[in-house]
Design a protein around this nucleic acid. Structure first.
Lengths: 343, 343
DNA sequence: TTCTCTACTGTGAACGCTCACAGACAGCGT
DNA sequence: ACGCTGTCTGTGAGCGTTCACAGTAGAGAA
């Protein structure tokens, strides 16, 4: 009846337009938009019809201005570029987190902090309150970013166990120690006794725990721990190759090797092939992660599956809870042995 | 003098606080924030000092509410998950785009549209105006998303030449045809004559152009085009392996193969090894992209370098220009032959 | 009846910023 | 003296939403 927007208007409909269309007030529309408590079924229906008719979508900026929330979260990766480029695990994590957030209608802001400059810029951005929380992926030991964000009171969930044990920071991790135990038991069951290990960096709990699981099972089985059979890498393919090479030099009689990531295991396979060792006939190889790299490898890697989809969804769940005011939480997820051709 | 925020206040400082601190008005602070035109040096200085002192950062939501801009852009990938997981090119592109945007203080929203549902949800999100523009990566032929966004008037830049030629859509691409020519000339210079090709999908300009370059150079050189030496894949490793296998079956005398992506070339290497062909002694292999996959491959791949860093920065430049009101633009970047061990 | 309680609805006031406008002041030509 | 231009500054309005509050109506109890 009144002048409707028949003209060439380009301005999107506001909550006001919806209210007018539905014959209710702004407040009622807002209530329908946010859960629909204390609103009659008839109003509910009228508003929904008006929303459909006008094609209304909420203006997130106006909402954020008053609520103080941004309804977005950051995905922060504090790794050098090369690591991001070579390790498909990041993609899996990124993809699963994006999807888990999408279910809550929350966009993910990608933050890549490979250098010190970027780290500073991003820290400033986050502490300025431009995101409600942060999903942090970092294999650094005492990552200063995590500390700064915690101090600033930014909700934060880390992927993998963080170094500072006392600090009250949320994290979600796979059961590294248990996974390592499973793998070493499996290698023992294949009759191997001279089992080497290329561990992860030993300044990270993940690296330490996998090594601990390895030693624990060997000791239980009465196999002597030989330090010549242990080296550590940094999860990169190159470090796996170098590590395995060193192992072969130090302990030529090695008949199996447990490598703390699939990517490093790929490197180890390269080193073994170059040394003329057949896999799995001469040397069994066990990986960790069950990433794309495991199935791509030749032969396909026996590995410990980390449930990345569950890790991601738990990270998102814990982060949203924390944004909602709950206390930090730690979640440890079970792993699973996946047998393929390398053992 | 007046009550300052000595208490336990948690509210971040606003433009008002800065104005009071600097002894100027909100308008002047705003002008300093947005380029500083029409503001005296003394005021300029006072405002900057006040900003430093108060630790002020602009509230982007309040700004966006009035400007109508979100000052953020989406990075949209319309590829199945598996492709995202296995191809490091996406990571390189993602990383470079994030950095290029960071220079303009613009956050990147990651949008992964692997399924039809996600595609719909994301299209709705974008057309609702929640981002100012979109960087689109898609190897689909007639991607409906691109069409929808274009119709909705969303600034859009595509990575790689899009299918619909007439449509006025911005894109940035490497010179596929020229790159292919370089590679085939190189293979000819190595004395090869029975050169096979595993092309990309032929419903995309990228796939078509590389094949065209291949045929062009062979014809020029007086080498007959043999259809048994041509198959096409979808850029995945698996399709490269299968394609090369088919080639070996159809043309056992093949002495070189030009594969339209490094990832497919990795697959081709696998197929060749299984067939007992030595690379490069029996068969030369040429890739395309110069991705991480090229250096990881054994032997390291001779390939055509796509300048991903420049592609990304150009995509961002063109997108921002378009957001600023300029017309769509097309940018073609030169490629470069990188010689390694596979030829 | 009257009072209370619950379910529901409308209204003004923010949120923090930018924009358009008006005004002040200086310099300069007429 | 006047107007003009250009530089600089302050002010009010308004962006679209949520929130707190006040208010209405109907049901049920006293």
């Amino acid at each position: 009846m009144t002048m409707s927007n028949t003209g060439g208007r380009r301005r999107p409909p506001t909550i006001h337009d919806v209210a007018r269309e539905a014959g209710v007030s702004r407040g009622t529309v807002s209530r329908v938009l946010n859960g629909g408590h204390y609103v009659s079924p008839s109003a509910q229906e009228a508003v929904n019809a008006a929303i459909r008719k006008t094609g209304y979508v909420v203006n997130r900026h106006a909402r954020s201005l008053i609520t103080g929330r941004s309804d977005s979260v950051g995905f922060l990766l504090t790794e050098p570029q090369e690591r991001f480029f070579e390790d498909p695990n990041f993609n899996v994590l990124l993809s699963a987190c994006t999807q888990a957030l999408a279910a809550h209608d929350i966009p993910l802001l990608l933050m890549l902090a490979g250098t010190e400059d970027e780290r500073r810029r991003i820290t400033r951005y986050i502490t300025a309150g431009h995101v409600d929380g942060v999903l942090l992926v970092s294999s650094h030991s005492g990552d200063p970013v995590a500390e700064q964000l915690r101090e600033a009171g930014v909700p934060l969930v880390q992927c993998g166990k963080p170094m500072g044990l006392g600090s009250k920071v949320s994290y979600v991790a796979a059961d590294d120690r248990d996974g390592a135990r499973d793998m070493v038991r499996h290698l023992l069951s294949r009759g191997r006794r001279r089992i080497g290990m290329v561990s992860g960096p030993l300044d990270t709990p993940g690296g330490v725990d996998r090594l601990a699981g390895y030693k624990e099972v060997l000791t239980e089985a009465g196999v002597e721990i030989d330090e010549r059979l242990i080296v550590s890498g940094d999860y990169s393919r190159a470090s796996g190759e170098a590590g395995c090479e060193r192992l072969l030099a130090q302990a030529p009689d090695m008949d199996a090797v447990f490598v703390a990531s699939d990517l490093m295991a790929q490197g180890a396979l390269t080193a073994l092939r170059r040394a003329g060792r057949r896999v799995p006939e001469d040397v069994s190889v066990g990986g960790f992660d069950d990433s794309v790299a495991a199935t791509e490898a030749i032969p396909a890697l026996t590995t410990i599956r980390q449930p990345y989809d569950r890790i991601s969804s738990e990270m998102v769940r814990v982060l949203l809870a924390q944004i909602g005011g709950e206390d930090p939480a730690a979640v440890i997820l079970p792993t699973e042995l996946v047998k393929r051709d390398s053992t």
